[in-house]
Design a protein around this nucleic acid. Sequence first.
DNA 1: TCTGGGGTCCTAGGACCC
DNA 2: TCTGGGGTCCTAGGACCC
Length: 425
Amino acid sequence: MLSTKQDNYVAIVDCNNFYASCERVFNPKLNNKPVVVLSNNDGCVIARSQEVKDLGIPMGIPVFKIRHLVEIHDIQIFSSNFALYGDISNRIMSIIRSGNADMEVYSIDEAFVNVNPRYKDPIKYATDLKNKIYQWTGIPVSVGIGKTKTLAKVANHLSKRNVGKDNVCLIDNDNIQKLLTRIKVGDIWGIGRRKQRFLKINGIYNAYDLKRANPEWIQKHMTVISRHTVDELNGIKKIELEYENATKKSISTSRSFSRMISDLNTLRNAISSHASRSAEKLRSQNSFVNSIGVYLCTNRFRADLPQYRRYINVQLPIALNDTSGIINAALEGLYKIYRSGYEYKKCGVILTDLIQANEVQQSLFYSRREKDEKISKSIDQINQIFGSDTIRYAVQGQNESWSIKREKLSPSYTTNWNEFLTLKI
DNA sequence: TCTGGGGTCCTAGGACCC
DNA sequence: TCTGGGGTCCTAGGACCC
């Protein structure tokens, strides 16, 4: 009988310390040195090289809390450079795809692969792929293999702890009990802090305990998602690979400010810019939006200041995808929720209830809308050629005093002609 | 002084209806 | 004075992910 996809092994290819590794590719001096990459505004640690993990520095910690360690250990700090990481990610995904793989790009640094049964030896397939990616891009990856996505993720977790061989680990019937026993329940894909706490209270401590739990009981006391996790640990595929590049169901743009903002005018600039950027993302997937959410909030870490946070949804009379219409609706929301007398730290725009262009109903305003759409499309084209924000709406403001701080940015080695690496011969 | 951003999915609970 | 019950739909908020 022909093997079906149902029986195939699933592999997950996961880049090791991805952003930190990207910084190293073009700057070999960083090899063997501790490297961290920071979030927007150079706020929190969002990527750590192995050396930094070994120092016990946790993910997400604000950088000001580890200043002393930075000094002592000469930690190399970088602002996040998503242009660079995105480009390297695309290269890696192309390499995986070039092996005729059925794959799902799961995140910027991870891909699920349906291991074709013509690869008689999944471990060899994974090892070859891993070596090729390293050779062609300089990025080290780990591969986990199992009968389901959840088991592949568990195997991947183990592969980074030197289980298996050369950063490749496969879970099969022979080793599943031994390996799952070594995984804490909170390290399973889909089990977060809260579910972990609940499971522990009920005597379920490791992945093998959860594998043996009663699925009905889990569904009743947790969620259907958690039941799927139990099934997947038992080798029953419940979470399918998504081969197509799915259109997004919501689009959001938000930023923390580099300083506190109180005045409505600056908030208007920020909300307009986020609305404009969201509209671009919307058009890039050929969608229209029916409902626009706007929110703002004060700094929750400043207990000494009055706190305020509010979200509002603006329902549109007709679906839109033009920038000016979307900015107007977002500002309408802003005016409703803005209160003076607060120091705001962050605001954002969320487009929800999206539909594809062919589902849009015709309306009386059709001709007007068509014109706005054409304008937006032209702006997109110009901005694509001459750089984003070459053309923008006046309400977005001239100066961006609210915008982000990136003081430790590495060059965009691969995406900007002016910042290519130059070799001295 | 300084604390990220962008997603998906589920559920509880309110509104509304018969 | 007593004050139904069940269904659907919608949404805000939570949990989780990277």
